[in-house]
Computed example of a mutant assay.
Amino acid sequence: MTNVHENITEILLLIFLIITFLQSGFDKVADWKGNLSWLTGHFSETPLKNVVPLLLGIILVIEVLAGALCGVGVIQFILDGESTMAIYGTILSCITLLFLLFGQRVAKDYEGAKTIVIYFMPAVFLLYILASN
């Protein structure tokens, strides 16, 4: 229980990322056609219009991987206070959010881009905490 108390901030932020990315990945799998349809329209006037299915698949894979690594990071923190997997999961989370931000900016969805920044801030903060230890 000492590891939980000593790393509670990191654990809570990792859980935030787990919820964010695993739920998003689950949504993409559960409603692939709906997501693909919406995104095809969203990017119809951009240079990305012909690669939306590929990009959606890539985002799905890295979201699930980021969430899973963060999950392993929580377990690692609890069991032995180590942060290796948490760092990998957080870095991949930040990269994923940057990809999403790029997509929103390309689509000129500036409100959507602002939303991504809200998720990016705690992810970068977590990375800062993890890198400082």
Rank of each mutant, 00 (worst) to 15 (best):
M1A: 15
M1S: 15
N3Q: 13
E6I: 01
E6R: 02
T9H: 07
I11P: 03
I11W: 05
L12R: 08
F16N: 05
F16W: 06
L17F: 12
I18H: 02
L22N: 08
Q23I: 14
S24I: 00
D27P: 03
K28W: 06
D31C: 08
K33F: 11
K33V: 12
G34V: 07
N35R: 11
N35D: 14
S37P: 04
L39M: 15
T40C: 07
E45Y: 10
P47Q: 13
K49Y: 07
K49Q: 14
V52C: 08
G57V: 10
G57T: 12
I62Y: 09
I62N: 09
E63Y: 07
E63T: 06
V64T: 13
L65N: 09
A66P: 04
G67D: 02
A68D: 05
C70I: 03
G71D: 04
G73S: 10
G73I: 02
G73D: 03
I75F: 10
L79P: 02
S83A: 15
T84M: 03
M85R: 05
A86K: 02
I87Y: 02
I87V: 13
G89I: 00
T90P: 00
T90K: 00
L92Y: 03
C94I: 14
C94Q: 07
I95E: 11
T96Q: 11
F102N: 10
G103L: 01
G103D: 08
G103R: 01
Q104R: 13
Q104K: 12
R105V: 15
R105P: 03
R105M: 12
V106T: 13
A107R: 03
A107S: 11
K108Q: 11
K108G: 03
D109M: 04
D109P: 05
Y110I: 06
G112T: 12
A113N: 05
K114M: 14
K114N: 15
K114H: 13
K114R: 15
I116L: 09
I116A: 10
M121R: 07
P122S: 08
F125S: 09
L126E: 06
L127R: 02
Y128D: 05
I129T: 04
